[in-house]
Design a protein around this nucleic acid. Structure first.
Lengths: 245, 245
DNA sequence: TTTGCATCATTGTCAGACAATGATATTACA
DNA sequence: TGTAATATCATTGTCTGACAATGATGCAAA
């Protein structure tokens, strides 16, 4: 083996970062983000039509369409033939999107639930530690609503979601809430397909009292244990449902 | 207020699920998935050209392009002008995508790291509990490589990634590994932009020995503690880097 | 062995046309 | 007057054909 320059050049090359290729529709995306920020468009608002955008940005309509298609794939917008294009998610100039793919199977029910459980337990502990007075009051109030709906025999799922959202918001790390919500959606997408819409978690509602109280009084370990108990109970429900099937 | 039917209809309506609108490019996507599964295409393989796909599926090329654009937005494929379209992620007929949005800022560094930390700690504990002999051997071997590279002063980041991947794989829940990897990517995307490519985590490498040993010998609590120590150390590094800046 | 060049294949962009559909206004009818 | 059917329009979905821009490949030249 002779004197080989490739080793040296490799080290040099490794210190380089790939040059970003900027295609036209990336610039369209940037322009759209700027437009949305400047116009103050909120979730649910309608975007300008494709033709308007094309004329304004001086590009072809197909280019606009391809850019919008990428956003549609990421769930940022929805498009309706005959109607228009609706903004579905908050978007900022420095946003980054992380797509995670899952396979929809019975087993992934347990998997998503167990990952979500880990995150929710941590978020509960953080909430117990970090929540301010206002947030603690909100959590207590959401719990009252939840237990009220539950005891009246109403559909408590919306109240349950609000209760958990209040806790996740109080964790001081919005990423927990985001990921938990996404996993929640996936979870329900999975089990509603093959299993119909069972009210999973019914038995765990009474356990929420301990969670609420622990978070409100700042008992970090207690919050963790309470949430753990809820997660465990739901898991046995899921397991039973899978076995039945 | 007269007899109002909306209350009753609401209850009925709530039990319905939205009908999925099937547009043409969704069917193109389905056909593509079937094609990829049937042809056994792997990550890194090239897809047929747009013209071929259009002719084969008897749709216009623009329809093919829009379908591919959606996949591109989700990171499933990359497309290169002049070259072709490359498969970048495994894809299955029952995959579902979870997009998560983050803002690129210093604080989200800490946030992503803390969420990732929670997941990695749990994955380490699961690995200690569930790994089979083969996986334990692999983890030990990956650790040897890592420490070797580290002591030689080489770039240890690839070895580090392989070590953690071995642990995550042994957790028996692939979702942990998936989400951890995605967060890892986000983390590095964020900090490489404003901070250059610092070798974050350098000081934590020696701590990996305790983690490796605990996982290999099945010490669940020990694995959790070791991973927690690593996470904490990296967090202080990140915090210091942010403060410096 | 490397460099420069010609050629080809492939994706990117554009324009124009028509179809399909949702929203809205108008009309007909009870 | 209120409701249902209808007509009209705006908007997205799809197709066709064309050309531009670029990466890959093979060949010749240095």
């Amino acid at each position: 083996m002779k004197n080989n320059p490739s080793q040296n050049t490799n080290k040099l090359v490794n210190s380089l970062r790939p040059i970003k290729k900027r295609t036209r529709d990336m610039e369209v995306i940037d322009a759209l983000i700027a437009m949305i920020e400047q116009a103050g468009l909120k979730v649910g608002d309608r975007l300008p039509t494709e033709n308007e955008l094309a004329k304004q940005l001086e590009v072809g309509r197909s280019t606009i369409r391809e850019a919008l298609k990428a956003w549609q794939g990421m769930g940022i917008i929805t498009r309706n033939k005959g109607a228009g294009t609706i903004l579905e998610a908050e978007i900022f100039s420095n946003s980054v999107f992380v797509p995670i793919s899952l396979r929809l199977e019975a087993e992934s029910l347990l998997r998503t639930h167990s990952v979500r459980g880990v995150l929710e337990i941590e978020a509960s502990k953080l909430a117990a530690a970090n929540a301010n007075d206002e947030q603690r009051k909100l959590i207590a109030a959401k719990f009252d609503i939840l237990i009220d709906e539950f005891e009246k025999g109403n559909d408590w799922r919306a109240a349950d979601a609000e209760f958990h959202t209040a806790i996740n918001d109080a964790s001081d790390n919005p990423l927990f809430g985001q990921m938990i919500n996404q996993l929640h959606d996936v979870f329900h997408n999975i089990y509603e397909e093959p299993f119909g819409q069972a009210k999973l978690g019914q038995a765990s509602i009474p356990l929420h009292r301990a969670l609420s109280e622990a978070v409100v009084k700042g008992d970090v370990d207690g919050a963790g244990r309470a949430m753990q108990a809820i997660v465990d109970l739901v898991q046995t429900e899921v397991q039973a449902m899978i076995n039945e099937q």
